[in-house]
């Protein structure tokens, strides 16, 4: 039983059932950030937590198989570039960070386009950054045991 990395069978089964729901809840929080409580920061941390959950239950290799370290760092950079390009799009309307993308109709999902895309970019940045930090702390621990 101890040959496999990770925790016991009960924890693994529960993780397999819940990890998808947690990831989906994080994406919901991000996409509805301009309508209801939540937003890019909370959604990004929840997305990071879903991968952390996988890492705690199944060991580091299972989580790194889903999303490897170079992919995570590239996603974080994509988030930063998206946020900066949204800021530069504002220059078309007059000044930095101006909401040129339009407001849309309030109370619908596709409205307030500036806030929506900013939420997505912030969630990518926060989620991938915190995941990278936690994986590096876990890997440093593995190095010490040798």
């Amino acid at each position: 039983m101890n040959k496999e990395p990770g925790m016991t069978l009960i924890v693994k089964t529960v993780t397999r059932l819940t990890v998808g729901i947690i990831l989906m809840y994080g994406i919901y929080i991000v996409l509805h950030g301009h309508l209801s409580p939540g937003g890019g920061f909370a959604g990004g941390v929840i997305i990071a937590l879903s991968f952390v959950h996988l890492m705690l239950a199944y060991g580091k290799e299972a989580a790194l198989k889903k999303i490897s370290l170079p992919v995570a760092s590239v996603l974080e950079s994509i988030g930063a570039i998206m946020f900066i390009s949204i800021a530069f799009l504002g220059l078309l309307g007059g000044y930095f960070f101006f909401h040129t993308l339009g407001t849309g109709e309030p109370f619908s999902l596709f409205s307030a386009y500036t806030v929506l895309f900013s939420n997505i970019s912030i969630s990518l940045k926060v989620g991938c950054g915190l995941f990278l930090v936690l994986v590096s702390i876990a890997l440093a621990g593995k190095e010490k045991k040798k």
Binding site: G39, F41, V45, V133, S136, I137, A140, K144
Partner: peptide, 23 residues
């Protein structure tokens, strides 16, 4: 809202320094 997330990141940085010192 931004300060809380920055607090988490700085806590992670401090923990990383503590791990290095412990090693």
């Amino acid at each position: 809202l931004t300060a809380i997330v920055i607090g988490l990141a700085t806590t992670a940085l401090m923990v990383a320094l503590a791990v290095r010192i412990y090693e």
